[in-house]
Computed example of a mutant assay.
Amino acid sequence: MTARETITTEQFDEMFDNGEDVSAYVDWSKARRPNQEARRVNVDFPAWMVRDLDKEAGRLGVTRQSLIKMWIAEKLG
């Protein structure tokens, strides 16, 4: 099958289930992640907390923002 062919949902599912690359059949420009839309939130932290966040983020090899998001997700999940 070529990327220009139209395939059925069943064919797509079978290809996916078989571990085949189905990316040619996906229009990534229209992809959405439900309930994952980003919204900006501003939070003020004391300087000592930012220092400790940066230290822990560095230890884990992630950004400060990623660390904060991971910790909040753990508490909410």
Rank of each mutant, 00 (worst) to 15 (best):
F16T: 09
D54K: 12
V26F: 06
V41Y: 04
Q65I: 07
L60I: 03
E56K: 10
T63W: 04
G58Q: 09
E14Q: 12
G77E: 08
V41F: 09
W48P: 02
L76M: 15
M15V: 01
Q11T: 08
S66Q: 05
R51W: 11
V62E: 01
A31Q: 07
D17T: 09
D52P: 00
R39S: 13
G77D: 08
M49W: 04
R39H: 10
A57D: 07
W28S: 01
N35K: 09
R32L: 13
P46I: 09
R40A: 05
S29A: 08
R59W: 00
E37A: 09
K55N: 14
M70I: 14
D52G: 05
R39I: 14
R32M: 12
A24F: 04
I72M: 11
V62H: 01
M70R: 13
M70H: 13
I72V: 15
R40Y: 03
Q11F: 04
M15D: 02
A38L: 15
I7Q: 03
D52A: 11
K75E: 12
S23P: 05
W71V: 14
T2W: 11
S29V: 01
I7L: 08
V62F: 03
R39P: 02
A73F: 08
E20P: 01
V50T: 10
E5W: 02
L60T: 02
W28E: 00
W71A: 14
M49S: 02
G61L: 07
T8E: 03
T8Y: 01
V22W: 03
R33L: 10
K75R: 15
E5L: 15
A3N: 13
G77M: 05
A73Y: 08
E20Q: 11
S23W: 00
F45V: 02
K55T: 15
Q11S: 06
R39F: 14
S29Y: 02
W48G: 09
N35V: 07
